[in-house]
Design a protein around this nucleic acid. Structure first.
Lengths: 97, 97
DNA sequence: ACCTATTTTATTTTATATGATAAAGGGGAA
DNA sequence: TTCCCCTTTATCATATAAAATAAAATAGGT
């Protein structure tokens, strides 16, 4: 495994959010497995932040959990903006696609 | 290749955002390659949305481009909130990690 | 203690992202 | 035109995500 601290942090944050949401829905790993198309062992590994997951896998999971992808990557503090800036004080302009 | 429409869309959106940001910084693929650790061909493929990237690759890119990961995944419309809800009307509670 | 459901861990195989490298394409500028 | 820079495409090797499966832990109930 062994990733940089940023990668490790994001893997754990995302894994925690997935697990929390799964519990909210009252789903077992087995049930989420059916809904998402990932196997139970894979889900266990992802939820514990032990895998450098591919984007498609996360997207399938968000669909199964009925949340949007940006939620998984949202900042923790409720303060900051998180929509695409169209020319901002931060000095970049990502929108529009 | 061949992904579902959600995956294809996100790959293109993220690729476009990366390329736009790279241009903003006046970087060539070669220069971004050095900064991010990905090879030039890989960057070309990612920027055109033709790869199912791993999360670690995106994180290295955001660092090289000096943007935050949530920006890459931000919704297009400037309206919606995008921070972690702590118990919301949407019916889920992802925070805290 | 037992029983059951759930989760974790381990192993093997398959699919694919990524690296390394080379070659080809595409504009501009001279 | 030729040169130069940048990007795309192609090929092969390697690393690893993910599937499939089984087995071993763990958790909660009773």
């Amino acid at each position: 495994m062994t990733w940089g601290p940023d990668v490790a942090n994001w893997n754990i944050v995302i894994g925690n959010r997935i697990r929390k949401r799964r519990k909210e829905l009252g789903l077992s790993l087995e049930e989420l497995s059916v809904l998402s198309g990932s196997t139970v062992p894979t889900l266990s590994i992802i939820e514990r932040g032990k895998r450098d997951v591919k984007l498609s896998t996360l997207i399938a999971l968000t669909a199964a959990l009925r949340i949007e992808l940006p939620i998984l990557f949202a900042r923790k503090d409720g303060s900051e903006k998180n929509t695409v800036p169209s020319s901002t004080s931060e000095g970049y302009d990502l929108g529009d696609d």
